[in-house]
Computed example of a mutant assay.
Amino acid sequence: MSLKQRITDDMKAAMRAKEAERLNTIRMLLAAMKQKEVDERVELDDTLIVAIVDKLIKQRKDAAQQFEGGGRQDLADKEKSEIVVLEAYLPQRLSADEVTAAVKAIVAELGACGPGDMGKVMGAVKQRLAGQADMGVVSAAVKAALAG
Rank of each mutant, 00 (worst) to 15 (best):
L86E: 03
L75K: 10
I83H: 02
E87P: 00
D45M: 04
E98D: 15
D77I: 02
L86N: 03
K104E: 15
A51L: 12
V84W: 01
A88L: 11
P91D: 03
L94N: 07
Q73P: 01
K80S: 00
L94W: 10
V42S: 13
E82K: 09
I57Y: 02
K61V: 03
I49S: 01
Q65W: 01
L94T: 07
P91Q: 05
G71Y: 06
A102I: 07
L86K: 04
I52Y: 05
K80T: 01
V53Y: 04
K80W: 00
S95Y: 09
G69D: 06
G71V: 04
R93P: 15
L94G: 08
A76V: 00
E87I: 00
S95M: 10
E79Q: 12
S95W: 11
A102E: 09
Y89W: 09
A76M: 02
Q66A: 12
D74Q: 08
S95K: 12
Q59R: 09
V42E: 13
E43I: 09
D46P: 09
I49R: 00
R72M: 09
E68I: 02
I83Q: 03
S81V: 01
Q65I: 00
V50W: 05
T100L: 12
A96I: 10
V85P: 00
Q92S: 13
A105W: 11
I83V: 13
G70T: 06
D46C: 08
V85D: 00
A101C: 08
I49D: 00
E82P: 01
A88M: 11
K78H: 05
D45S: 04
D74S: 09
E40I: 03
R41A: 15
Y89T: 04
G69K: 06
Q66R: 10
L90D: 04
P91R: 02
V84N: 04
I83M: 05
V50F: 05
S95H: 09
R93S: 13
V84I: 08
E79A: 11
T47Y: 14
D77K: 08
Q59C: 04
V103P: 11
V99W: 08
A101M: 10
E98A: 15
Q66P: 03
A102R: 09
P91L: 02
E98K: 15
A102W: 07
A63C: 02
S81Y: 02
K78A: 09
I106P: 12
K58S: 13
D45P: 03
T100G: 10
E87D: 04
L44S: 07
R41F: 15
R72H: 11
I83Y: 01
Q73S: 06
R41W: 14
L94S: 10
Q59A: 12
L56T: 07
I52S: 05
A105D: 14
D62N: 10
V99R: 08
E82I: 00
K78T: 06
R93I: 04
A63S: 08
V84C: 01
K58Q: 14
I83P: 02
A51C: 13
T47Q: 13
I106A: 11
I49F: 00
L56S: 06
A64K: 01
L48D: 13
D45K: 04
I49P: 01
Q73D: 06
V99E: 05
